[in-house]
């Protein structure tokens, strides 16, 4: 889905999911997709007992990731998206903030 011409992303039905990494720096979910895969960024798996599983609201398999820490990731490659998720240095609280479109 493309954003509207003036650059504003439609916010209908989108959910903000926030989580902190575990002691290994992992959030516990898998992502697939990216501009190089010609697919939107989708959560393909959420491991039980991980921050992604236990945060409220919960991240679910099939959710589409729209923003990562406020950044629109629509035009980034798979590897870049993974980097954005792992880089928690963008905010002081070490929290990952995702805006997702629920499955």
């Amino acid at each position: 889905e493309k954003s509207t011409p003036n650059g504003i992303i439609p916010h209908d039905n989108l959910v903000i999911v926030r989580m902190r990494p575990d002691e290994n720096g992992r959030f516990g979910f898998n992502v697939k997709g990216g501009s190089d895969q010609k697919m939107p960024v989708i959560v393909s798996r959420v491991a039980p007992g991980t921050p992604a599983d236990q945060c409220v609201p919960r991240l679910n398999e099939g959710d589409q990731v729209v923003l990562i820490n406020g950044r629109d990731i629509a035009d980034y490659t798979h590897d870049q998206v993974v980097s954005f998720i792992k880089c928690s240095c963008e905010n002081n609280s070490n929290e990952l903030i995702l805006l997702v479109r629920p499955n």
Binding site: R26, F27, N30, V31, K32, G33
Partner: peptide, 12 residues
């Protein structure tokens, strides 16, 4: 034309 169907998922 054949296309690669390889889709990569990464654990984060």
């Amino acid at each position: 034309e054949e296309k690669d169907e390889c889709i990569i998922a990464t654990e984060v």
